[in-house]
């Protein structure tokens, strides 16, 4: 399976990475995709996919609220905050949803 330019474009768009063609070719995506493609010769007829090895049932949480961190802690690692320190702030987004 060749990693076409269209694929590179789509995948970098989906993953929000700015990937130039030169960088993409250096990533050797072709060979890796081809290599993982070898899986197809493994016989998995009638086998369900396995998404976790956990042999136990998941323990769910009780519906209890716990007090939240302070805004100071919430905003500790960013400067993308409005002047009043009440919101995260980003360049104006034209609403698309």
């Amino acid at each position: 399976m060749a990693f076409t330019k269209a694929m590179t474009d789509k995948m970098s768009r989906l993953s929000q990475l700015e990937l130039t063609e030169a960088v993409a070719s250096n990533l050797k995506l072709d060979s890796i995709l081809e290599w993982v493609g070898e899986l197809k010769v493994c016989d998995t007829e009638g086998i369900d996919p396995m998404f976790s090895t956990a042999p136990f049932n998941m323990k769910m949480r009780e519906d209890k609220k716990i007090s939240t961190p302070t805004r100071e802690e919430i905003f500790f690692n960013t400067s993308n905050v409005d002047g009043d320190k009440k919101f995260f702030s980003i360049p104006k987004v034209i609403e698309t949803k």
Binding site: D82, F87, F88, S89, P91, K92, V93, E95
Partner: peptide, 15 residues
């Protein structure tokens, strides 16, 4: 929620 009406150049995020 995104808040658009509090600043001319920024959108604010309330989580």
């Amino acid at each position: 929620k995104l808040v658009h009406d509090k600043s001319p150049n920024s959108s604010y995020i309330d989580l």
